[in-house]
Amino acid sequence: MHVPVSITINGRQYSRDVEPRLLLVHLIRDVLGLTGTKVGCDTSQCGSCTVLIDGVAAKSCTCLAVQADGTSVTTIEGMAGDEGLHPLQESFWNKHGLQCGYCTPGMIMASHELLRCNPDPSDEEIRHGLEGNFCRCTGYQNIVRAVRDAAGSATGGAQ
């Protein structure tokens, strides 16, 4: 069985016929070639695949492409706008919030969610807000700094 799916990603609309079993992350990465979104696990734990579906963070590995039909998705590729990097991207860069970078796209999307729900979080709240995103490199400390820093700067939404 193939099912038509129409989805807007980073402002551009895509229509494809997909197998129902296709995960959103595979649609994004393998069908549409937007490889910024990562896959780090097969049990929905690691958060590497986090995207925004209609502005709300979701694990794209735990959503079928058909479930996302008709939605508007933002991936890491859609975070920078005409004015340049998103404040979160800037702050991850400024605060050395990444090393190998593999967790970073998901981490930035999860941080976006955190600030959407809580624009002025404490360190404790940042740590809790990122509990669904694993990073094996940084020990998280500079990620926390980066999010705190981004919260301080003008909050710009995703495109």
Binding site: G47, V56, A57, A58, T62, C63, A110, L114, E131, N133
Partner: peptide, 9 residues
């Protein structure tokens, strides 16, 4: 429950 992304869906 889980984490924010899990709770969202």
């Amino acid at each position: 429950i889980g984490d924010p992304a899990v709770r969202n869906r």
